[in-house]
Design a protein around this nucleic acid. Structure first.
Length: 237
DNA sequence: AAAAATCTCAACCGCCGGGAT
DNA sequence: AATCCCGGCGGTTGAGATTTT
């Protein structure tokens, strides 16, 4: 048996690949990733395609820093469900499990650092009960955001950029560019960029229809949307 | 201004469960 | 009923960006 035609590509996605993926997701919907990966001509695994779509290209995504409300919600939900990132993500429209996971990880690291500092500063014997390892799944009382507070978050439609290397050098492109490209190449079909952004979801995916009322639908029967009655106090939500 | 340290986030991996055959 | 395949999830890694010294 000859090896696969070419080995599957890995690493950062190129703009062309994104365009291709978006186009084929519009055609086939958000499913059958393996098939989609094959017919699209992308030298990527189905998994890789799905991940790229779900975590980056999906029209409903919000990128950039979490709002304080979102941060609060993550804390509350993590207290309730632990590391069930996908489930938590379903309560934060536009956020992916990956993003939340990353956020939590960063936060825990910060927390651990602070704790290390404080324990080394004040050698309190009782502090051993809440050490770093146990804190990973244990929601700390409050949120500490010290650094980078001044940094503005960037939205998908505006200025989020990616950098990647090519033979010709480093390129960067934004989501707007991707959608513009699609609009340009498909202009004959009469769809505007905006229609693409929204059309991508409505045309392609039955899944999306499913989610249109609640885009981040949860099908787990145990699931309950947290309410203040559940002990969640989410101010200004 | 440069180097070092830290942070962020995209992407991969392995495992698991569900559906199809 | 058993097996296979695919998609989804959580954990982890590494490159690039940003901040601090």
């Amino acid at each position: 048996m000859a090896a696969k035609n070419e080995e599957t590509r890995k690493g950062p996605w190129m703009e062309q690949e994104d365009l291709q993926l978006v186009r084929f997701v519009r055609l086939f919907g958000e499913r059958r990733w393996d098939y989609l990966a094959k017919v699209s001509g992308l030298n990527r695994s189905g998994k890789s395609c799905r991940l790229r779509w779900v975590n980056y290209l999906h029209p409903g995504l919000r990128h950039g820093r979490m709002t304080p409300e979102e941060e609060h919600l993550v804390l509350e939900l993590h207290a309730k469900w632990g590391n069930r990132w996908s489930r938590i993500a379903q309560c934060l429209p536009g956020r992916t499990d990956n993003e939340i996971k990353n956020y939590w990880r960063t936060r825990m690291r910060k927390k651990a650092q602070e704790r290390r500092m404080s324990t080394s500063a004040s050698p309190s014997p009782s502090s051993s009960s809440s050490n770093i390892s146990s804190s990973a799944n244990e929601p700390p009382p409050d949120l500490v955001m010290k650094k980078r507070d001044g940094m503005e978050s960037v939205a998908v439609g505006s200025s989020l950029t990616l950098g990647f290397g090519t033979n010709e050098g480093v390129m960067a492109y934004s989501m707007d560019q991707i959608w513009d490209e699609i609009a340009a190449t498909d202009r004959v079909s009469g769809l505007s960029t905006e229609e693409h952004k929204h059309g991508a979801r409505s045309v392609a995916s039955p899944l999306w229809e499913h989610c249109s009322a609640s885009p981040w639908k949860v099908d787990d029967e145990e699931f309950e949307m947290p309410t203040p009655a559940d002990g969640l106090v989410i101010s200004s939500l």
